[in-house]
């Protein structure tokens, strides 16, 4: 059945509606005062352990890279650049120039195009997103640091939690393990 318009009207205010409305508003306020059903994240004592598949920081697996430059070409923010590196060919033992991507996190918008466009899955997302750089230069990775997963300092200080959708409370915090799956 396709969408169809339905005419609606504002309910007029009755004689007691003002009285009733006030009582209802105060009652719901009192109800939540005694049972707030809150799910606040007490950061940094707790931190959200994001799901696998979250588009967080990007890491390069160098030996998978085929230097196709697709990632640099599709990057909407021009954050990814190819650098030329001399490598030794394992088969022939000859020296030659190969291109590898590096990323500038000052520019990155975490759209994940590069990861999706990579034909050999040489790039992957780490599922965390809150990392502090002390300077602008630090956020520009070179080939070495692009291969390492960036240091996630919050994970050392806090307890990992995850939010799951609940019918009554909306979001419910559950504790999860630092590494891997969920904890009971």
């Amino acid at each position: 059945m396709p969408p169809r318009p339905v005419e609606k009207h504002v309910h007029p205010r009755g004689i007691f509606s003002r009285f009733k409305g006030n009582l209802e508003a105060i009652a719901i306020g009192v109800k939540y005062f005694f049972d707030p059903k809150r799910s606040t994240l007490i950061y940094p004592k707790e931190y959200i352990k994001l799901r696998e598949g979250y588009r967080g920081f990007i890491v390069l697996v160098k030996n998978k890279c085929i230097s196709c430059s697709s990632c640099a070409r599709i990057c909407p923010a021009a954050a990814m650049k190819m650098v030329k590196v001399p490598v030794t060919d394992p088969k022939t033992g000859k020296q030659r120039i190969k291109k590898f991507p590096v990323i500038n996190y000052n520019r990155c918008i975490f759209c994940g195009y590069c990861v999706d466009v990579c034909p050999t899955e040489a790039l992957y997302h780490v599922p965390y997103h809150d990392i502090v750089y002390e300077s602008m230069e630090e956020a520009v990775t070179d080939l070495e640091s692009f291969q390492k997963e960036p240091e996630y300092k919050t994970a050392k200080e806090g307890l990992p939690v995850r939010y799951i959708v609940d019918e009554v409370k909306g979001l419910v915090k559950i504790r999860v393990k630092k590494e891997g799956g969920e904890k009971k």
Partner: peptide
């Protein structure tokens, strides 16, 4: 899909 477009007057 089956849904309505509410229209208030």
């Amino acid at each position: 899909l089956d849904f309505e477009i509410p229209v208030f007057q």
